[in-house]
Amino acid sequence: MLLTHLERVLNYWPMLLRGVGTTVGISLASLLIGVALGFAFGIIRTGSNRWLSRALGLYIDIFRGTPFLVQLFMVFFILPSFGLELSAFTAGVVAMSNMAACFIGEIVASGIRAVPAGQTEAAMATGMSRAQQLRLVILPQAVRIVTPALVGQFVLLIKDSSVVSAIGLFDLTRSGWIIVQNVPNGLIVFGLVGLCYLVICYPLIFSARRMERRAQAPVL
């Protein structure tokens, strides 16, 4: 019984693989946009313009404080009423990269704040502009500080992408959902789906942990 189920599920292997491809693709696309936006957010959050920083802080809180599913529905059901018809994939990328930017923005901001004030002073004392201070001195150090957290964020992003299956994206979770309609054994089907996620995410979790351990070793 178990074996025949397993065999039947394995017949759907191409479907699972396709799901893996979509999951990785949508996560990567959102990661790239999310990192770019997130760095901009982090710089604004630590910048000298108080009001802009506060306004952005509120924006970030709104997306950190609501479930991703609700945000996704917002993008998917409401943007069309402005005449923007989005595919599940695009809606997913929009919602995911926006949310990622909010989380990454706070990570980057904390990284920038973690760079000692003496570094800014040293850069300032040699006449660097604010942009030069950021680009040449502060961000390179902040990036090192936040890299493990960014990798962790990528794992979260991959996992959150499963939610996009709720608006019909054919990702890994959705493929499991379809297979389970045909092979009624949720343990095997979602066990296998889980295994696929594990294969994708575990190396990232592992490397993030290693980086963290290395970062804890004294640098100076």
Binding site: V155, V180, P184, N185, G186, L187, G194, C201
Partner: peptide, 23 residues
């Protein structure tokens, strides 16, 4: 801990939802 952290809640949820009746 590692399995939970490396898989999405939704997949875990479906695992239980479709799986528990099975056993």
């Amino acid at each position: 801990v590692d399995i939970i952290r490396a898989t999405p809640l939704l997949a875990q949820l479906y695992f239980l939802y479709f799986g528990l009746p099975r056993i």
